[in-house]
């Protein structure tokens, strides 16, 4: 079964990190990713740009395009992983490995089974 691991955290906190802290964090996460990739469990991985760069399109009789993220929340969606796991527990285990590599006190991972997955073209 494929699962998405959605990463949420307070953008105000993550953008307050220094370049060194951010680099070190990314290196630690990369190490976890490499382990997963070797076991053939890792699908697409994405890190999103800050929500300042977002546009929001509201559907309705007239579509409306707004600046900024779709909702004002305490934590923002920062990125996601797609992983191949036997059970949801295993996927939660992967998320907790990522959480440990992150080692900072805030943030949330949401683990959701995928209903449909179409990798389409391999983008680089």
């Amino acid at each position: 079964m494929l699962y998405a691991i959605l990463c949420y955290d307070s953008e105000a906190v993550t953008t307050a990190m220094s370049a060194e802290e951010d680099g070190a964090l990314m290196d630690r996460l990369l190490a976890v990713q490499e382990k997963l990739a070797k076991r053939g469990k890792l699908g697409p991985v994405a890190r999103l740009m800050p929500t300042n760069t977002a546009s929001t399109l509201r559907k309705g009789p007239q579509t409306l395009v707004l600046d900024g993220p779709f909702a004002e929340t305490k934590e923002q969606l920062l990125g996601f992983y797609v992983v191949d796991c036997e059970t949801q527990e295993e996927a939660v285990g992967v998320a907790s490995e990522l959480a440990k590599a992150g080692t900072h006190g805030t943030g949330t991972y949401e683990i959701r089974p995928l209903m449909m997955f179409k990798p389409n073209a391999a983008l680089t």
Binding site: S10, A12, V13, A16, M17, E21, G105, T106
Partner: peptide, 15 residues
């Protein structure tokens, strides 16, 4: 980040 570091970051962000 150690405990103190993330609390610091959260305090700075909320300030």
């Amino acid at each position: 980040m150690k405990d103190a570091a993330w609390i610091d970051a959260a305090l700075t962000a909320a300030r």
